[in-house]
Amino acid sequence: MIKDITIGQYFPGDSVIHRLDPRVKIVLAILYIAFLFIIQTAAAYLFALAVTFILVRLTKIPLKMYLRGLKPLLFILIFTAFLNVFYSTGEPLVKFWIFTVTSEGIKNAIFMMLRIFMLVIATSMLTYTTSPIVLTGGLERLLSPLAKIKIPVHEFSMMMTIALRFIPTILEETDKIMNAQKARGADFETGGLIKRAKALAPILIPLFISAFRRADDLATAMECRCYTGSGEGRTHYVSYSMSSADYVSLLVLAAMIAAAVFLNFVTVMGF
């Protein structure tokens, strides 16, 4: 039922990747994406592909799960590939009607597809191996310096935390209300769009009323536990400490980026 929706798509586990510090993981994901945009040669793409597969294996989450994340992007993937194949400038291979296929085009198309493919895997890996709450916590710590320039980092993080806490509760409630309405003869499964939308009103209205009550209760409960709304002077129960695995992975990625930049430089200079 509706309860089966998994938000954030976290797969609990105990792999090396799972155990990395969330702050490091966020930084790594960003650096890896940067790396994917820097590389230009076939050899580099092959190397990146190998790294990606090794990382996937390390998470102990089946590749199938990662590929699922690509499905909604299939259209964009094919479309960009199509554009690249036919509209790149370069030595024409085949020519028919208004289309010209160039070897550059084919190369660009493959590179672009690989890049999106690895991009999706990298970001999926971050959410698959980090629980949403830890991810939020990590993000708050990473961005905490921004609080100095009046960016409400703590407030956003608290909003995320509460949203994540209440999603299961509200989904459960939706299920209950739907069942209650079904027991009274409501029909959500048949009829046209308008009829179905109308059938939703008796679910949404009680759901909204209850959500506002919950919000009110929760705000009071938080105040009662000395919450003042600002992150100032707060301490954190969950502490993150960087292990050697964290430092090593950061170093490896930094080295990869440096190598990629160096190789680009070498190519540009025409050696």
Partner: peptide
């Protein structure tokens, strides 16, 4: 349901202490 703030038991119990700035 409406007075539990965190998703993990220990973190919820610690909520007031975090607000009070109690050392870890």
């Amino acid at each position: 349901d409406n007075q539990i703030i965190a998703t993990v038991v220990e973190e919820d119990v610690a909520f007031a202490l975090e607000n009070l700035g109690v050392p870890r």
